[in-house]
Computed example of a mutant assay.
Amino acid sequence: MRKMQVQGVHHITLTGADRQSSIDFWEGVLGMPFIFDQPNLDNADEGHLYFDPGDGRLITIFTNETRKPVHDRTPTDPGCVHHLAFNVSMATHRQVVARLDARGIAHSGVKDRGFMDSIYFKDPLGLLIELATYKFEPPRGTSHAEVMIEAHRIRVARGDNAIGEEHLADAIEMIVERSQQSLSEDRGAKNPY
């Protein structure tokens, strides 16, 4: 038996309501360019809209003009999607609350998650959306995931409950020491004052 190694999310497809409300939310609220539109090749009664969430991958929406937006929370039963999280810059994240308030969209306010800050709100169909921003930049040539696994190991070794900024800073320092050479024999912390 062998694994089928994945290399990232190709796309996520959601069941939407009508075409225009889907465009209005995904492009008009979240700013995702509407990049193409075709019929749902498995159901001639539906459209299939494609949006770019900012990383070149795809969010796609099946639409049907007979479906209308509902505002109930989507199911959170086992096997159901709890929420979708999208990355935004810190500059954008700092504007999210005011911009949601200006539209009259209820939201959670900023939630400190230790390694990121998050804001939650529902789309017009009741799907929980998270806009998240990392509190750190990974060292050159590494990913957020690489920093996170190191921060996790540090957190566990220290017996801490959740990853915090100190774990992230220490993880980044460890990654830099491993990946970048120095002429110094002793790279430990010093006090030049």
Rank of each mutant, 00 (worst) to 15 (best):
R113Y: 12
R113A: 04
D37K: 09
F121Y: 01
D52S: 10
L125M: 14
S143V: 05
A91H: 12
G159H: 09
I105Q: 00
N161S: 13
E137K: 13
D117C: 12
G54W: 05
D112H: 15
E146K: 11
D77M: 11
I59V: 08
A162S: 15
A162K: 15
D117G: 11
I35M: 13
D117K: 11
I35C: 11
E150I: 03
N87E: 14
V81G: 03
A157N: 14
N161P: 07
R153E: 14
I105W: 00
A91L: 11
R99G: 05
L168T: 02
H71V: 12
D37L: 09
P39Y: 10
F62R: 03
A157M: 08
A157S: 14
H167V: 10
H71Y: 12
E65C: 04
G164L: 07
V147L: 10
A151H: 03
D160K: 09
N161F: 11
H144A: 11
E65G: 05
R57P: 04
I61H: 00
T142M: 14
L58V: 15
I59R: 00
N64L: 07
P53M: 08
D77V: 14
D72I: 06
H83C: 01
L128H: 02
F36L: 13
R67L: 05
G114P: 02
S118R: 00
I163Y: 02
D45Y: 09
P78E: 04
Y134M: 12
E137L: 13
Y120K: 01
S89D: 12
D72F: 06
R153C: 06
K135E: 09
Y50A: 08
T66L: 14
P138V: 04
M148F: 13
N40Q: 09
S143E: 04
A98T: 14
F121C: 03
T133A: 15
Q95N: 13
H48T: 10
K68A: 12
V88S: 01
E146A: 15
E165K: 14
E166G: 06
K68P: 03
V156E: 08
T133Y: 10
T66S: 14
A162L: 15
I61S: 00
G104I: 04
V70S: 03
G104Q: 08
L127V: 03
A169P: 05
M90N: 09
I35K: 13
V97P: 01
I154C: 07
H83D: 01
Y134T: 10
L131P: 00
G109V: 06
I149E: 14
P69I: 02
